[in-house]
Nucleic acid binder design. Structure first.
Length: 556
RNA sequence: AGACCCAUGGUGUAAUCGGUAACACAGCUGAUUUUGAUUCAGUCAUUCAAGGUUCAAGUCCUUGUGGGUCUGCCA
């Protein structure tokens, strides 16, 4: 990987190294274990772990830290899935795996230190009252009647909070900053709240939990993080972040830097919607191939290399942006095109009979596994009198620009002969049930003879040799109906408001020419992959990369 | 009485001390092609606006305009 791209964050880091402020950047990826990782997280992962990789020779590193300060939302299942997805993406945290919950005692000490300095107080008013006193963006807040409690009383009450002397919501610890600040985050923010809930990591050891704004800067400082990278919506939190670092006993002073999060058009990327889709069973689970979770993309066969390249391509700025999904697809195709082994498959079969090919005879044709890479070798297929082709590869009333098989026309069978249509049979419904052709001898590896027009090659599967394979068609889920003028043939649509699946993405059985016993997953928009038990892929396999956007046949 | 942030082609990003708009995706044209893919060639911007400083402004200053974030005991 070349990490030569530069951006405003890399410039800051380069300057910090040049000035001697830091010898190497130490970053962190701090997910809350309350859901699966999605493509949006890939950006933060790529940035943080990428930076550590770039400066590895200087001693840089990236910590994986679970920001588990809210027991009611978090679960062990998620920490496992998150670890797995990061590793799959190709990054490693080594020994640097941390849990914010391991610092609970430290947070508590810091809180006591703040109280000692007269910078924090226990407020026992209701949350409604606190909200009322906070004012709004135009109106300054009013002081809490508990703001001037004595040091001793605060210490006592805070201790009582820890010991379970208050019910949920009964008391909070607040920072004493500025109730008139234009920044709402500075209006005496809550530092600790009472939550009597079992924590997935610390069990019942605690009944008070620190708020993000208090815990996060302390976590960073404790781990000697140099550059704490987060998304733009935390910009207004930075003054509070700095306040905490400045007023607590910290071993180091991290710096928070914000960057724009990843947005992709028509793509579901909110945890809330993912949870709803899973719970209401619109999908099979967090790793359903239709989902834009990392585990879903893994099952669809998106290579991690492509996701990393996509993240790199999108770049790092402070501008709110909306990327095209086409950019991700481009990276997927571009990577897959180099390494994927081609197979031929027919999903909606129509039988073809080569009338001038002797019955009972057959021959072997050799087909390259990957035209882009000779080292991938070739495979042998049996060609004989009867085989299947895709129904849509033959048209009775073909438009002028249809290059595949049509009455009187010719087409190349991929890796084999050019065949010429001589006739076809219609069933009771008027559907084509069988096509009759004649093959043109000496056209394997040879161009079409004079007078024969052959513009393309189609897939075919020998009736005798082909195997049935479990084939599933998937479409991505979209946040809304794709406008007609958008390119491609989109199927699965999702209404953003009702979260109702308007057109359920297809999941259909089919027929594929795979090696006996091999399973495959056919992904409608382009390629299909061997879908192993744990949904990981050794080597992706695909046939029509052409059709990533279903352009095959979409043109007239 | 609001605070903070952002502003370059359809999209995402570039542009050293201010020096005359670059790359990729998508689109469109054409060529090649045993995947309508790939590959190759061509094509697509008066840098939000108005002033100002300057020999020179996407870059600096001013004022507007547009967009984003913030009023959880979520992160």
């Amino acid at each position: 990987m070349s990490d030569e791209k530069k951006d405003f964050i890399r410039e800051i880091i380069a300057a910090d190294i040049a000035s001697g402020k830091h010898t190497a950047p130490i970053t962190r990826f701090p997910p809350e274990p309350n859901g699966y990782l999605h493509i949006g997280h890939a950006k933060a992962i790529g940035v943080n772990f990428g930076l550590a990789r770039q400066y590895a020779d200087l001693g840089a590193r990236c910590h994986l830290r679970f920001d588990d300060t809210n027991p009611v939302k978090e679960d062990e299942e998620y920490v496992e899935s998150i670890k797995k997805d990061i590793a799959w993406l190709g990054y490693e945290w080594g020994d640097h795996l941390y849990f914010a919950s391991d610092y609970f005692e430290y947070f508590y000490e810091c809180a006591v230190a703040l109280i000692d300095k007269g910078l924090a107080y226990v407020d026992t008013q209701t949350s409604d009252l606190l909200k009322e006193q906070r004012g709004n963006v135009k109106v300054p807040g009013t002081l809490s009647p508990h703001r001037e409690r004595s040091l001793v009383e605060n210490l006592e009450l805070f201790k009582k909070m820890r010991e379970g002397g208050f019910p949920d919501g009964g008391a909070v610890l607040r920072a004493k900053i500025d109730m008139a600040s234009g920044n709402m985050n500075m209006r005496d923010p809550v530092l600790y709240r009472v939550v009597h809930a079992r924590h997935h990591h610390t069990g019942d050891a605690w009944c008070i939990y620190p708020m993000y704004d208090f815990a996060h800067p302390l976590e960073d400082a404790k781990e000697h993080i140099t550059h704490s990278l987060c998304s733009l919506e935390f910009e207004n939190h930075r003054p509070l972040y700095d306040w905490v670092v400045d007023n607590c006993p910290v071993p180091s002073k991290p710096r928070q830097i914000e960057f724009a999060r990843l947005n992709i058009g028509f793509t579901v990327m909110s945890k809330r919607k993912f949870i709803q889709l899973v719970e209401e069973k619109h999908v099979g689970g967090w790793d359903d191939p239709r989902m834009s979770t990392l585990s879903g993309m893994r099952r669809r066969g998106y290579p991690p290399e492509a996701i990393r390249a996509f993240v790199e391509h999108v770049g790092l700025t402070k501008q709110n942006s909306l990327s095209d999904f086409a950019l991700l697809e481009f990276e997927v195709r571009s990577y897959l095109n180099k390494i994927a082994l081609r197979k031929m498959a027919v999903l909606d079969p129509v039988k073809v009979v080569v009338t001038n090919y002797p019955e009972g005879e057959s021959e072997i044709v050799t087909v390259p596994n990957n035209p882009e890479n000779e080292a991938d070798g070739s495979r042998e297929l049996v060609f004989s009198r009867e085989f299947w082709i895709e129904r849509e590869d033959f048209m009775v009333d073909a438009p002028k620009k249809f290059f595949r098989l049509k009455p009187g026309g010719a087409v190349r069978l991929r890796g084999a002969y050019i065949i010429q249509h001589t006739g076809h049979v219609l069933d009771d419904q008027g559907e084509v049930s069988e096509i009759h052709c004649e093959f043109i001898p000496n056209t394997i590896g040879q161009s079409a003879p004079e007078g024969v027009q052959c513009r393309t090659a189609i897939h075919w599967v020998s009736c005798a040799e082909g195997v049935d394979a479990e084939v599933r068609l998937y479409d991505r889920l979209f946040t809304e109906e794709i406008p007609d003028n958008a390119e491609g043939g989109y199927l699965g649509c999702l209404n953003p408001d009702s979260l109702q699946v308007i057109t359920p993405a297809k999941v259909e059985p089919g027929l594929a020419a795979m090696a006996p016993g091999e399973r495959c997953q056919f992904e409608r928009m382009g390629y299909f992959c061997a879908d192993s038990e744990d949904h990981t892929f050794e080597k992706p396999v695909f046939n029509r990369i052409v059709t990533l956007r279903d352009s095959w046949g979409a043109k007239d």
